[in-house]
Design a protein around this nucleic acid. Structure first.
Length: 570
DNA sequence: AGCACGCCGACT
DNA sequence: GTCGGCGTGCTC
């Protein structure tokens, strides 16, 4: 009697990969089939990854007669293997993240043989009309088209314009299951998904990747840490019938492109350095900015003030003694909201103090105004003609034509990023903002520090971007940071002594040709979480996945290994 | 006897 | 990474 090896959708430690079951001689089960298998006291959904006549677990193997629920094809088994290897997790753990929670009652789904397209494309281009381009390609594509985008709200927006279905983490389990199985079994369809559905690339004919430059394609918090962009590339390597079309606005640092591949973003743009600006009764806005704002209102144009400081005030800061309120859990500086203080690192909220606990002073308002406070001041003066938003709100907006966007501080639009990548993130966000204003035939008015503003205009042009990226790459190379040098991140829980032990193991496992930096402690951790340390491993040369896996797998039991980290010190 | 808790090894 | 079997020890 033959055997099948399956990967159950169950979290297992690294090294526990497959389980064997005995099947009848004539059973019609193939690699890539989704089946139900008895596992412990219950039954679990599983992916068939091999069929054979022998098994090392022949004495334990239970006999089953599996009825395949659905066929995901042999390439799904290969993608699973590759992803597990890349993320240093077991295949069952990765598969569990694909399946999430399957419904209790599984309807049998008719499988359809699916011819793959004969001339796969592999295109990457950059444009300021990204969404429009994606929609055009999706409308003309045939077969199964998967659109992968970094954010839920953008997935919803694209899907509604295409009348396509969406898949993201906030979908209920049953609805999610129905959505992806429908995609997997139909001959011609469009599905818009966030990274949660990136594995469906191995079932698609065409993948459209929105914003390849956006780090939010990566799941950087939970295990397994995977990157939707990597999954798409791996799927294309495994399935040579897959077309991949990447549509961005700014080429990522390290991509090889000439200026002609990069769009220059053109729009009416005013840059006003803070130096010498007059004060107004709308903090954050200069007299000249207010003049422009009122002119736009006069012309019946919508106005958006982008003030990237969340909450009511940026910090709770005493004007008299300089005391700043910090989070009781994790010591991060707190942001004031109307009645509470919120920590944007760990999420804890605390009551706002009435007086300074350090000196008793009552003026805790010394800091920069936040978006909420500015919004209420603006509303008093201009009613609903002007909208004040912070960054997350801006990303959710669809700009109406001829909008005037006033940005109060250019230096804040890159988000919270550590130093090494600050400029890179800022340039990418800046070009995304300018492109969306340009697409709406709008106008952009920008305030900020003079040093940044002097470069900002050039970043919108192809030549300016090329030279900014060249400078960035030179800087990275001198400190041996990506993309100039591969840098693998190891996360070790516990005190420094734990990390030192891993450091010793790494030294003996890797030899003297590798550079190891650290341990560095993770700076901000809440009091409820144990400390965590970071090591950086720099290989002597670019190694392929298999070599890396063999070298580093022994370390996977004592550290989380991240082959392409997007943050290096957190 | 009945039950809560914690440890440890197995899961096919 | 979980789950469940089993030993321990406490309560009725």
């Amino acid at each position: 009697m033959p055997f099948i090896s399956v990967v159950p959708a169950v979290r297992t430690p690294i090294g526990v990969d497959c389980f064997d079951y005995r099947i009848p001689e004539n059973a019609s089960v193939n690699v890539g089939d989704l089946v139900l298998v008895p596992f412990r006291k219950r039954s679990t959904i599983a992916l068939v990854v091999a069929r054979s006549h022998t098994s090392a677990f022949a004495d334990k193997a239970v006999e089953i007669d599996p009825a395949p629920i659905l066929s995901l094809g042999a390439s799904s088994a290969e993608l699973l293997q590759a992803t597990a290897q890349h993320t240093f997790s077991s295949r069952p753990t990765v598969f569990a993240s694909w399946m999430r929670t399957a419904p209790r009652r599984l309807p049998s789904i008719p499988s359809s043989s699916h011819p793959s397209s004969s001339t796969p494309q592999n295109l990457t281009f950059f444009t300021s009309s990204r969404i429009q381009t994606i929609i055009q390609h999706a409308s003309s594509a045939t077969g199964r088209t998967l659109i992968l985008t970094p954010w839920q709200h953008r997935a919803e927006a694209i899907a509604s314009r295409l009348e396509a279905s969406v898949l993201h983490a906030d979908l209920a389990d049953g609805a999610a299951w129905k959505t992806w199985t429908t995609f997997a079994t139909s001959m011609s369809t469009v599905l818009v998904t966030t990274r949660i559905g990136s594995w469906l690339a191995c079932l698609a004919d065409t993948v459209l990747l929105d914003e390849p430059e956006n780090d939010d394609h990566k799941q950087d918090e939970l295990a397994p840490r995977f990157d939707g962009r990597w999954i798409v590339d791996a799927s294309a390597r495994i399935r040579n019938g897959l077309s991949v079309i990447r549509v961005g606005t700014t080429p990522p640092l390290g991509s090889v492109l000439g200026p002609s591949d990069i769009p220059s973003i053109e729009l009416p743009l005013t840059l006003e350095p803070w130096q010498g600006r007059g004060r107004t009764d709308l903090p954050g806005l200069s007299p000249a900015a207010i003049e422009q704002l009122e002119a736009a209102i006069e012309a019946s144009h919508p106005v958006i003030v982008l003030h990237p400081v969340r909450g009511d005030r940026s910090r709770i800061h005493c004007r008299d003694c300089g005391w700043t309120m910090t989070c009781p859990s994790c010591s991060f500086t707190l942001t004031a909201e109307t009645t509470t203080a919120r920590c944007h690192r760990c999420g804890r909220t605390t009551d706002l103090p009435i007086a300074c606990p350090s000196c008793g002073g009552s003026d805790l308002n010394a800091s920069r105004i936040g978006k909420d406070r500015l919004a209420s001041l603006v509303a008093m003066r201009y009613g609903t003609k002007v909208t004040v938003v912070d960054l997350p709100e801006l990303h959710r907006l669809r700009l109406t034509p001829h909008t005037l966007v006033i940005l109060t501080d250019l230096s804040l639009i890159g988000g919270y990023v550590e130093d090494i990548r600050r400029k890179e993130r800022l340039i990418i966000s800046w070009r995304r903002l300018a492109a969306s204003v340009s697409q709406a035939n709008g106008e952009l008015y920008v305030l900020g520090p003079e040093t940044l503003l002097s470069e900002a205009r050039s970043w919108l042009s192809a030549e300016g971007l090329v030279s900014a990226w060249k400078q960035e790459e030179t800087d990275r190379a001198s400190f041996r940071y990506p993309p100039a040098h591969q840098r693998i991140k190891l996360l070790i829980d516990g005190e420094e002594s734990n990390a030192l032990a891993v450091l010793e193991h790494a030294k003996t496992a890797l030899g003297p040709s590798w550079i190891i930096e650290g341990p560095f402690p993770v700076a901000y951790r809440s009091n409820t979480r144990i400390p965590r340390q970071i090591l950086h491993l720099l290989p002597p040369a670019q190694l392929d996945e298999k070599e890396l896996f063999l070298l580093l797998e022994p370390l996977a039991k004592e550290a989380i290994i991240d082959l392409d980290p997007i943050a290096f010190f957190s």
